[in-house]
């Protein structure tokens, strides 16, 4: 509740300063104007193809990135050979700001959807790789021993111990991954595109349109918050076995 109050307070202050003429509306248009612009974008329907482009890129990048990063993480966790080969590459990719790859992807894959998906995918998969790789290493060895003494082989270990124990790690990084997926898509569009929210943002910048810029930022924030909320519900459902206190303190 207090967090909501903070945001509302900031917006009211902003609105007030603008009304008193202390803020230049060209640079910092008051919130109500941003909302009107946003409303206008939907009213005219001109936002829809852009929205669709960004969403497609972000969700495809998220999906394939989770799949790729997750499976590479599992491979590395269970095979020392893969671990030795993959870890340096991933560490390198993790160390650099991965958005600098955006221009390269445009050269390789063109200005269409593929280069945005690729950037999203790289951002997400490195994150997931480390979540899964680290998650497997943090599995409780007593549980492994228990399943083994009951006669369970690798498949049982994976199903009963590794995957559920990973779920906790992966689900919390999934929320971060959602943000990353949108970063990838929008930055990709920012660099070179003919459609998408990132393209609109770069258009707003070149026409000095702060109102449009803020409207788009608001839109992206709202969508990411929505996805956050959905993943939170999923997390609560999948991790219902966790003690209440811990689940709440993490939420």
């Amino acid at each position: 509740m207090r967090r909501v109050l903070g945001v509302v307070g900031l917006l009211l202050l902003w609105e007030g300063l603008a009304a008193w003429g202390l803020l230049n509306p060209l640079y910092a248009p008051p919130p109500h104007q941003v909302l009107l612009t946003l409303y206008g974008l939907f009213q005219s329907g001109e936002i829809l193809p852009h929205l669709q482009a960004t969403f497609t890129a972000a969700l495809l990048g998220l999906f394939w990135g989770v799949l790729l990063g997750g499976s590479l993480g599992l491979l590395a966790a269970f095979s020392p050979l893969f671990a030795d080969m993959l870890e340096p590459i991933m560490l390198l990719l993790n160390a650099i700001p991965r958005v600098i790859l955006a221009p390269l992807f445009v050269i390789w894959l063109g200005i269409g959807l593929a280069s945005k998906v690729a950037l999203s995918l790289v951002l997400v998969s490195v994150l997931l790789f480390f979540a899964v790789y680290g998650g497997v290493r943090n599995v409780d060895p007593r549980l492994v021993e228990r399943v083994e003494t009951l006669g369970g082989g690798r498949l049982w270990l994976l199903k009963e111990v590794y995957l559920p124990s990973l779920a906790a790690w992966v689900l919390s990084s999934l929320k971060v991954a959602v943000g990353f997926a949108f970063t990838g898509a929008v930055v990709g569009e920012f660099v070179a595109a003919s459609r998408g929210l990132g393209y609109l943002l770069s258009f707003a910048q070149s026409t000095y349109n702060a109102k449009l810029s803020l409207a788009l930022i608001t839109l992206i924030v709202l969508f990411v918050l929505l996805l956050f909320f959905l993943f939170d519900r999923l997390e609560r459902h999948l991790l219902r076995w966790r003690p209440r206190g811990r689940a709440e303190s993490q939420a």
Partner: peptide, 23 residues
Amino acid sequence: FQEDALLPWRTARENAALGLRIR
């Protein structure tokens, strides 16, 4: 053994059934 090491994500019944399921 000393540690009970039940699977925290499985109910008591599912934990008790684990060995049978593996068999």
